[in-house]
Design a protein around this nucleic acid. Structure first.
Lengths: 159, 159
DNA sequence: AAAAATAGGACAGTGATGTTGACGTATTAA
DNA sequence: TTAATACGTCAACATCACTGTCCTATTTTT
């Protein structure tokens, strides 16, 4: 846990961490952004495709919590994705108020391609940084997430 | 360096890396985003304040390269920042076509507060993750950046 | 059975941030 | 003198987010 006595991190260490995550994230998504743009879609669409692929059958509320946007904002994106036949909404049998989200075949194909874009870049980075570096990368990023949301993010992996 | 033989990274490792950087970055900037919103500013303004603070006297072309946006887009943001008296443009003595960018006192004060927001979150994360984790965090993020841009990012630290 | 809470959708207006494209001007370099 | 460079600017438009309000269907509570 956090050690309140030792403060081994200089301003330069902090600035480095800020700049690297900013540039790193933007490079990570670059190829996927281009593929999306070619289809007339944006990152907002990708995030929906990603999470629906990750947790097929999740409902709108759960997706809203993950994305941390308003339902009006999600509604537009979701409408476009269903119109294009990339995402499907099915009424839940347990609670007929809920709409469960699934990718169509076409949606899954696009998501796979987009995942490939991210994956090839990140695999290369893992490889270049070395196996020992990866747990540290995970640890700092995990610690950036507030306790409140950490369970939600962990749950993605458990699914 | 990259080992072309071993491929020790599963899809789950990759997904984890994607999700953590997405949620981690959004948590990192949360407090700063709120401070900006309270002033009627956005992340675009913050990025300018950040880089001008980091490299006082950089010119518009250099800033465009760092931000990777069009000059029309930057122009609006820069105009707002100068109007509010947060950023100052001075004509370069060496090349009078160039405008060199500096923070005003007020601009520097705001940037300091915003940096404090990022810094306190990231310091806490470094601390929680442990000193050993930080170099791994840096290494993976650095490797995410294309060789082309890596020199540019490194140059920020050297300044 | 009636009332209240929940899940979700819809309409209207607005703002921040980005884009392309075209054009202009001052300054420096060839 | 010509060409390239470093800006700045006007116009139109797209994406993605927001607030606020109102509505329906369904489930839960009382």
């Amino acid at each position: 846990m956090a050690d309140p006595i030792s403060r081994p991190f200089s301003e330069s260490d902090i600035r480095r961490g800020i700049e690297l995550i900013y540039f790193g994230y933007s490079h990570l998504t670059r190829a996927a952004d281009e593929r999306l743009a070619a289809q007339g879609l944006g990152r907002a669409h990708h995030r929906v495709l990603y999470f629906v692929s990750r947790q097929p059958g999740l409902n709108v509320s759960e997706l809203l919590r993950l994305l941390n946007v308003t339902k009006q904002s999600l509604s537009r994106v979701l409408g476009e994705l269903t119109q294009r036949g990339l995402v499907e909404l099915r009424t839940s049998a347990q609670d007929r108020r809920q709409r469960l989200l699934f990718l169509t075949g076409e949606g899954a194909a696009l998501e796979t391609a987009l995942f490939g874009d991210l994956s090839s870049r990140l695999s290369a980075a893992y490889g270049e940084a070395g196996t020992e570096a990866v747990p540290g990368y995970w640890a700092v990023l995990t610690a950036l997430i507030t306790m409140e949301d950490r369970a939600m993010v962990r749950a993605l992996g458990d699914a």
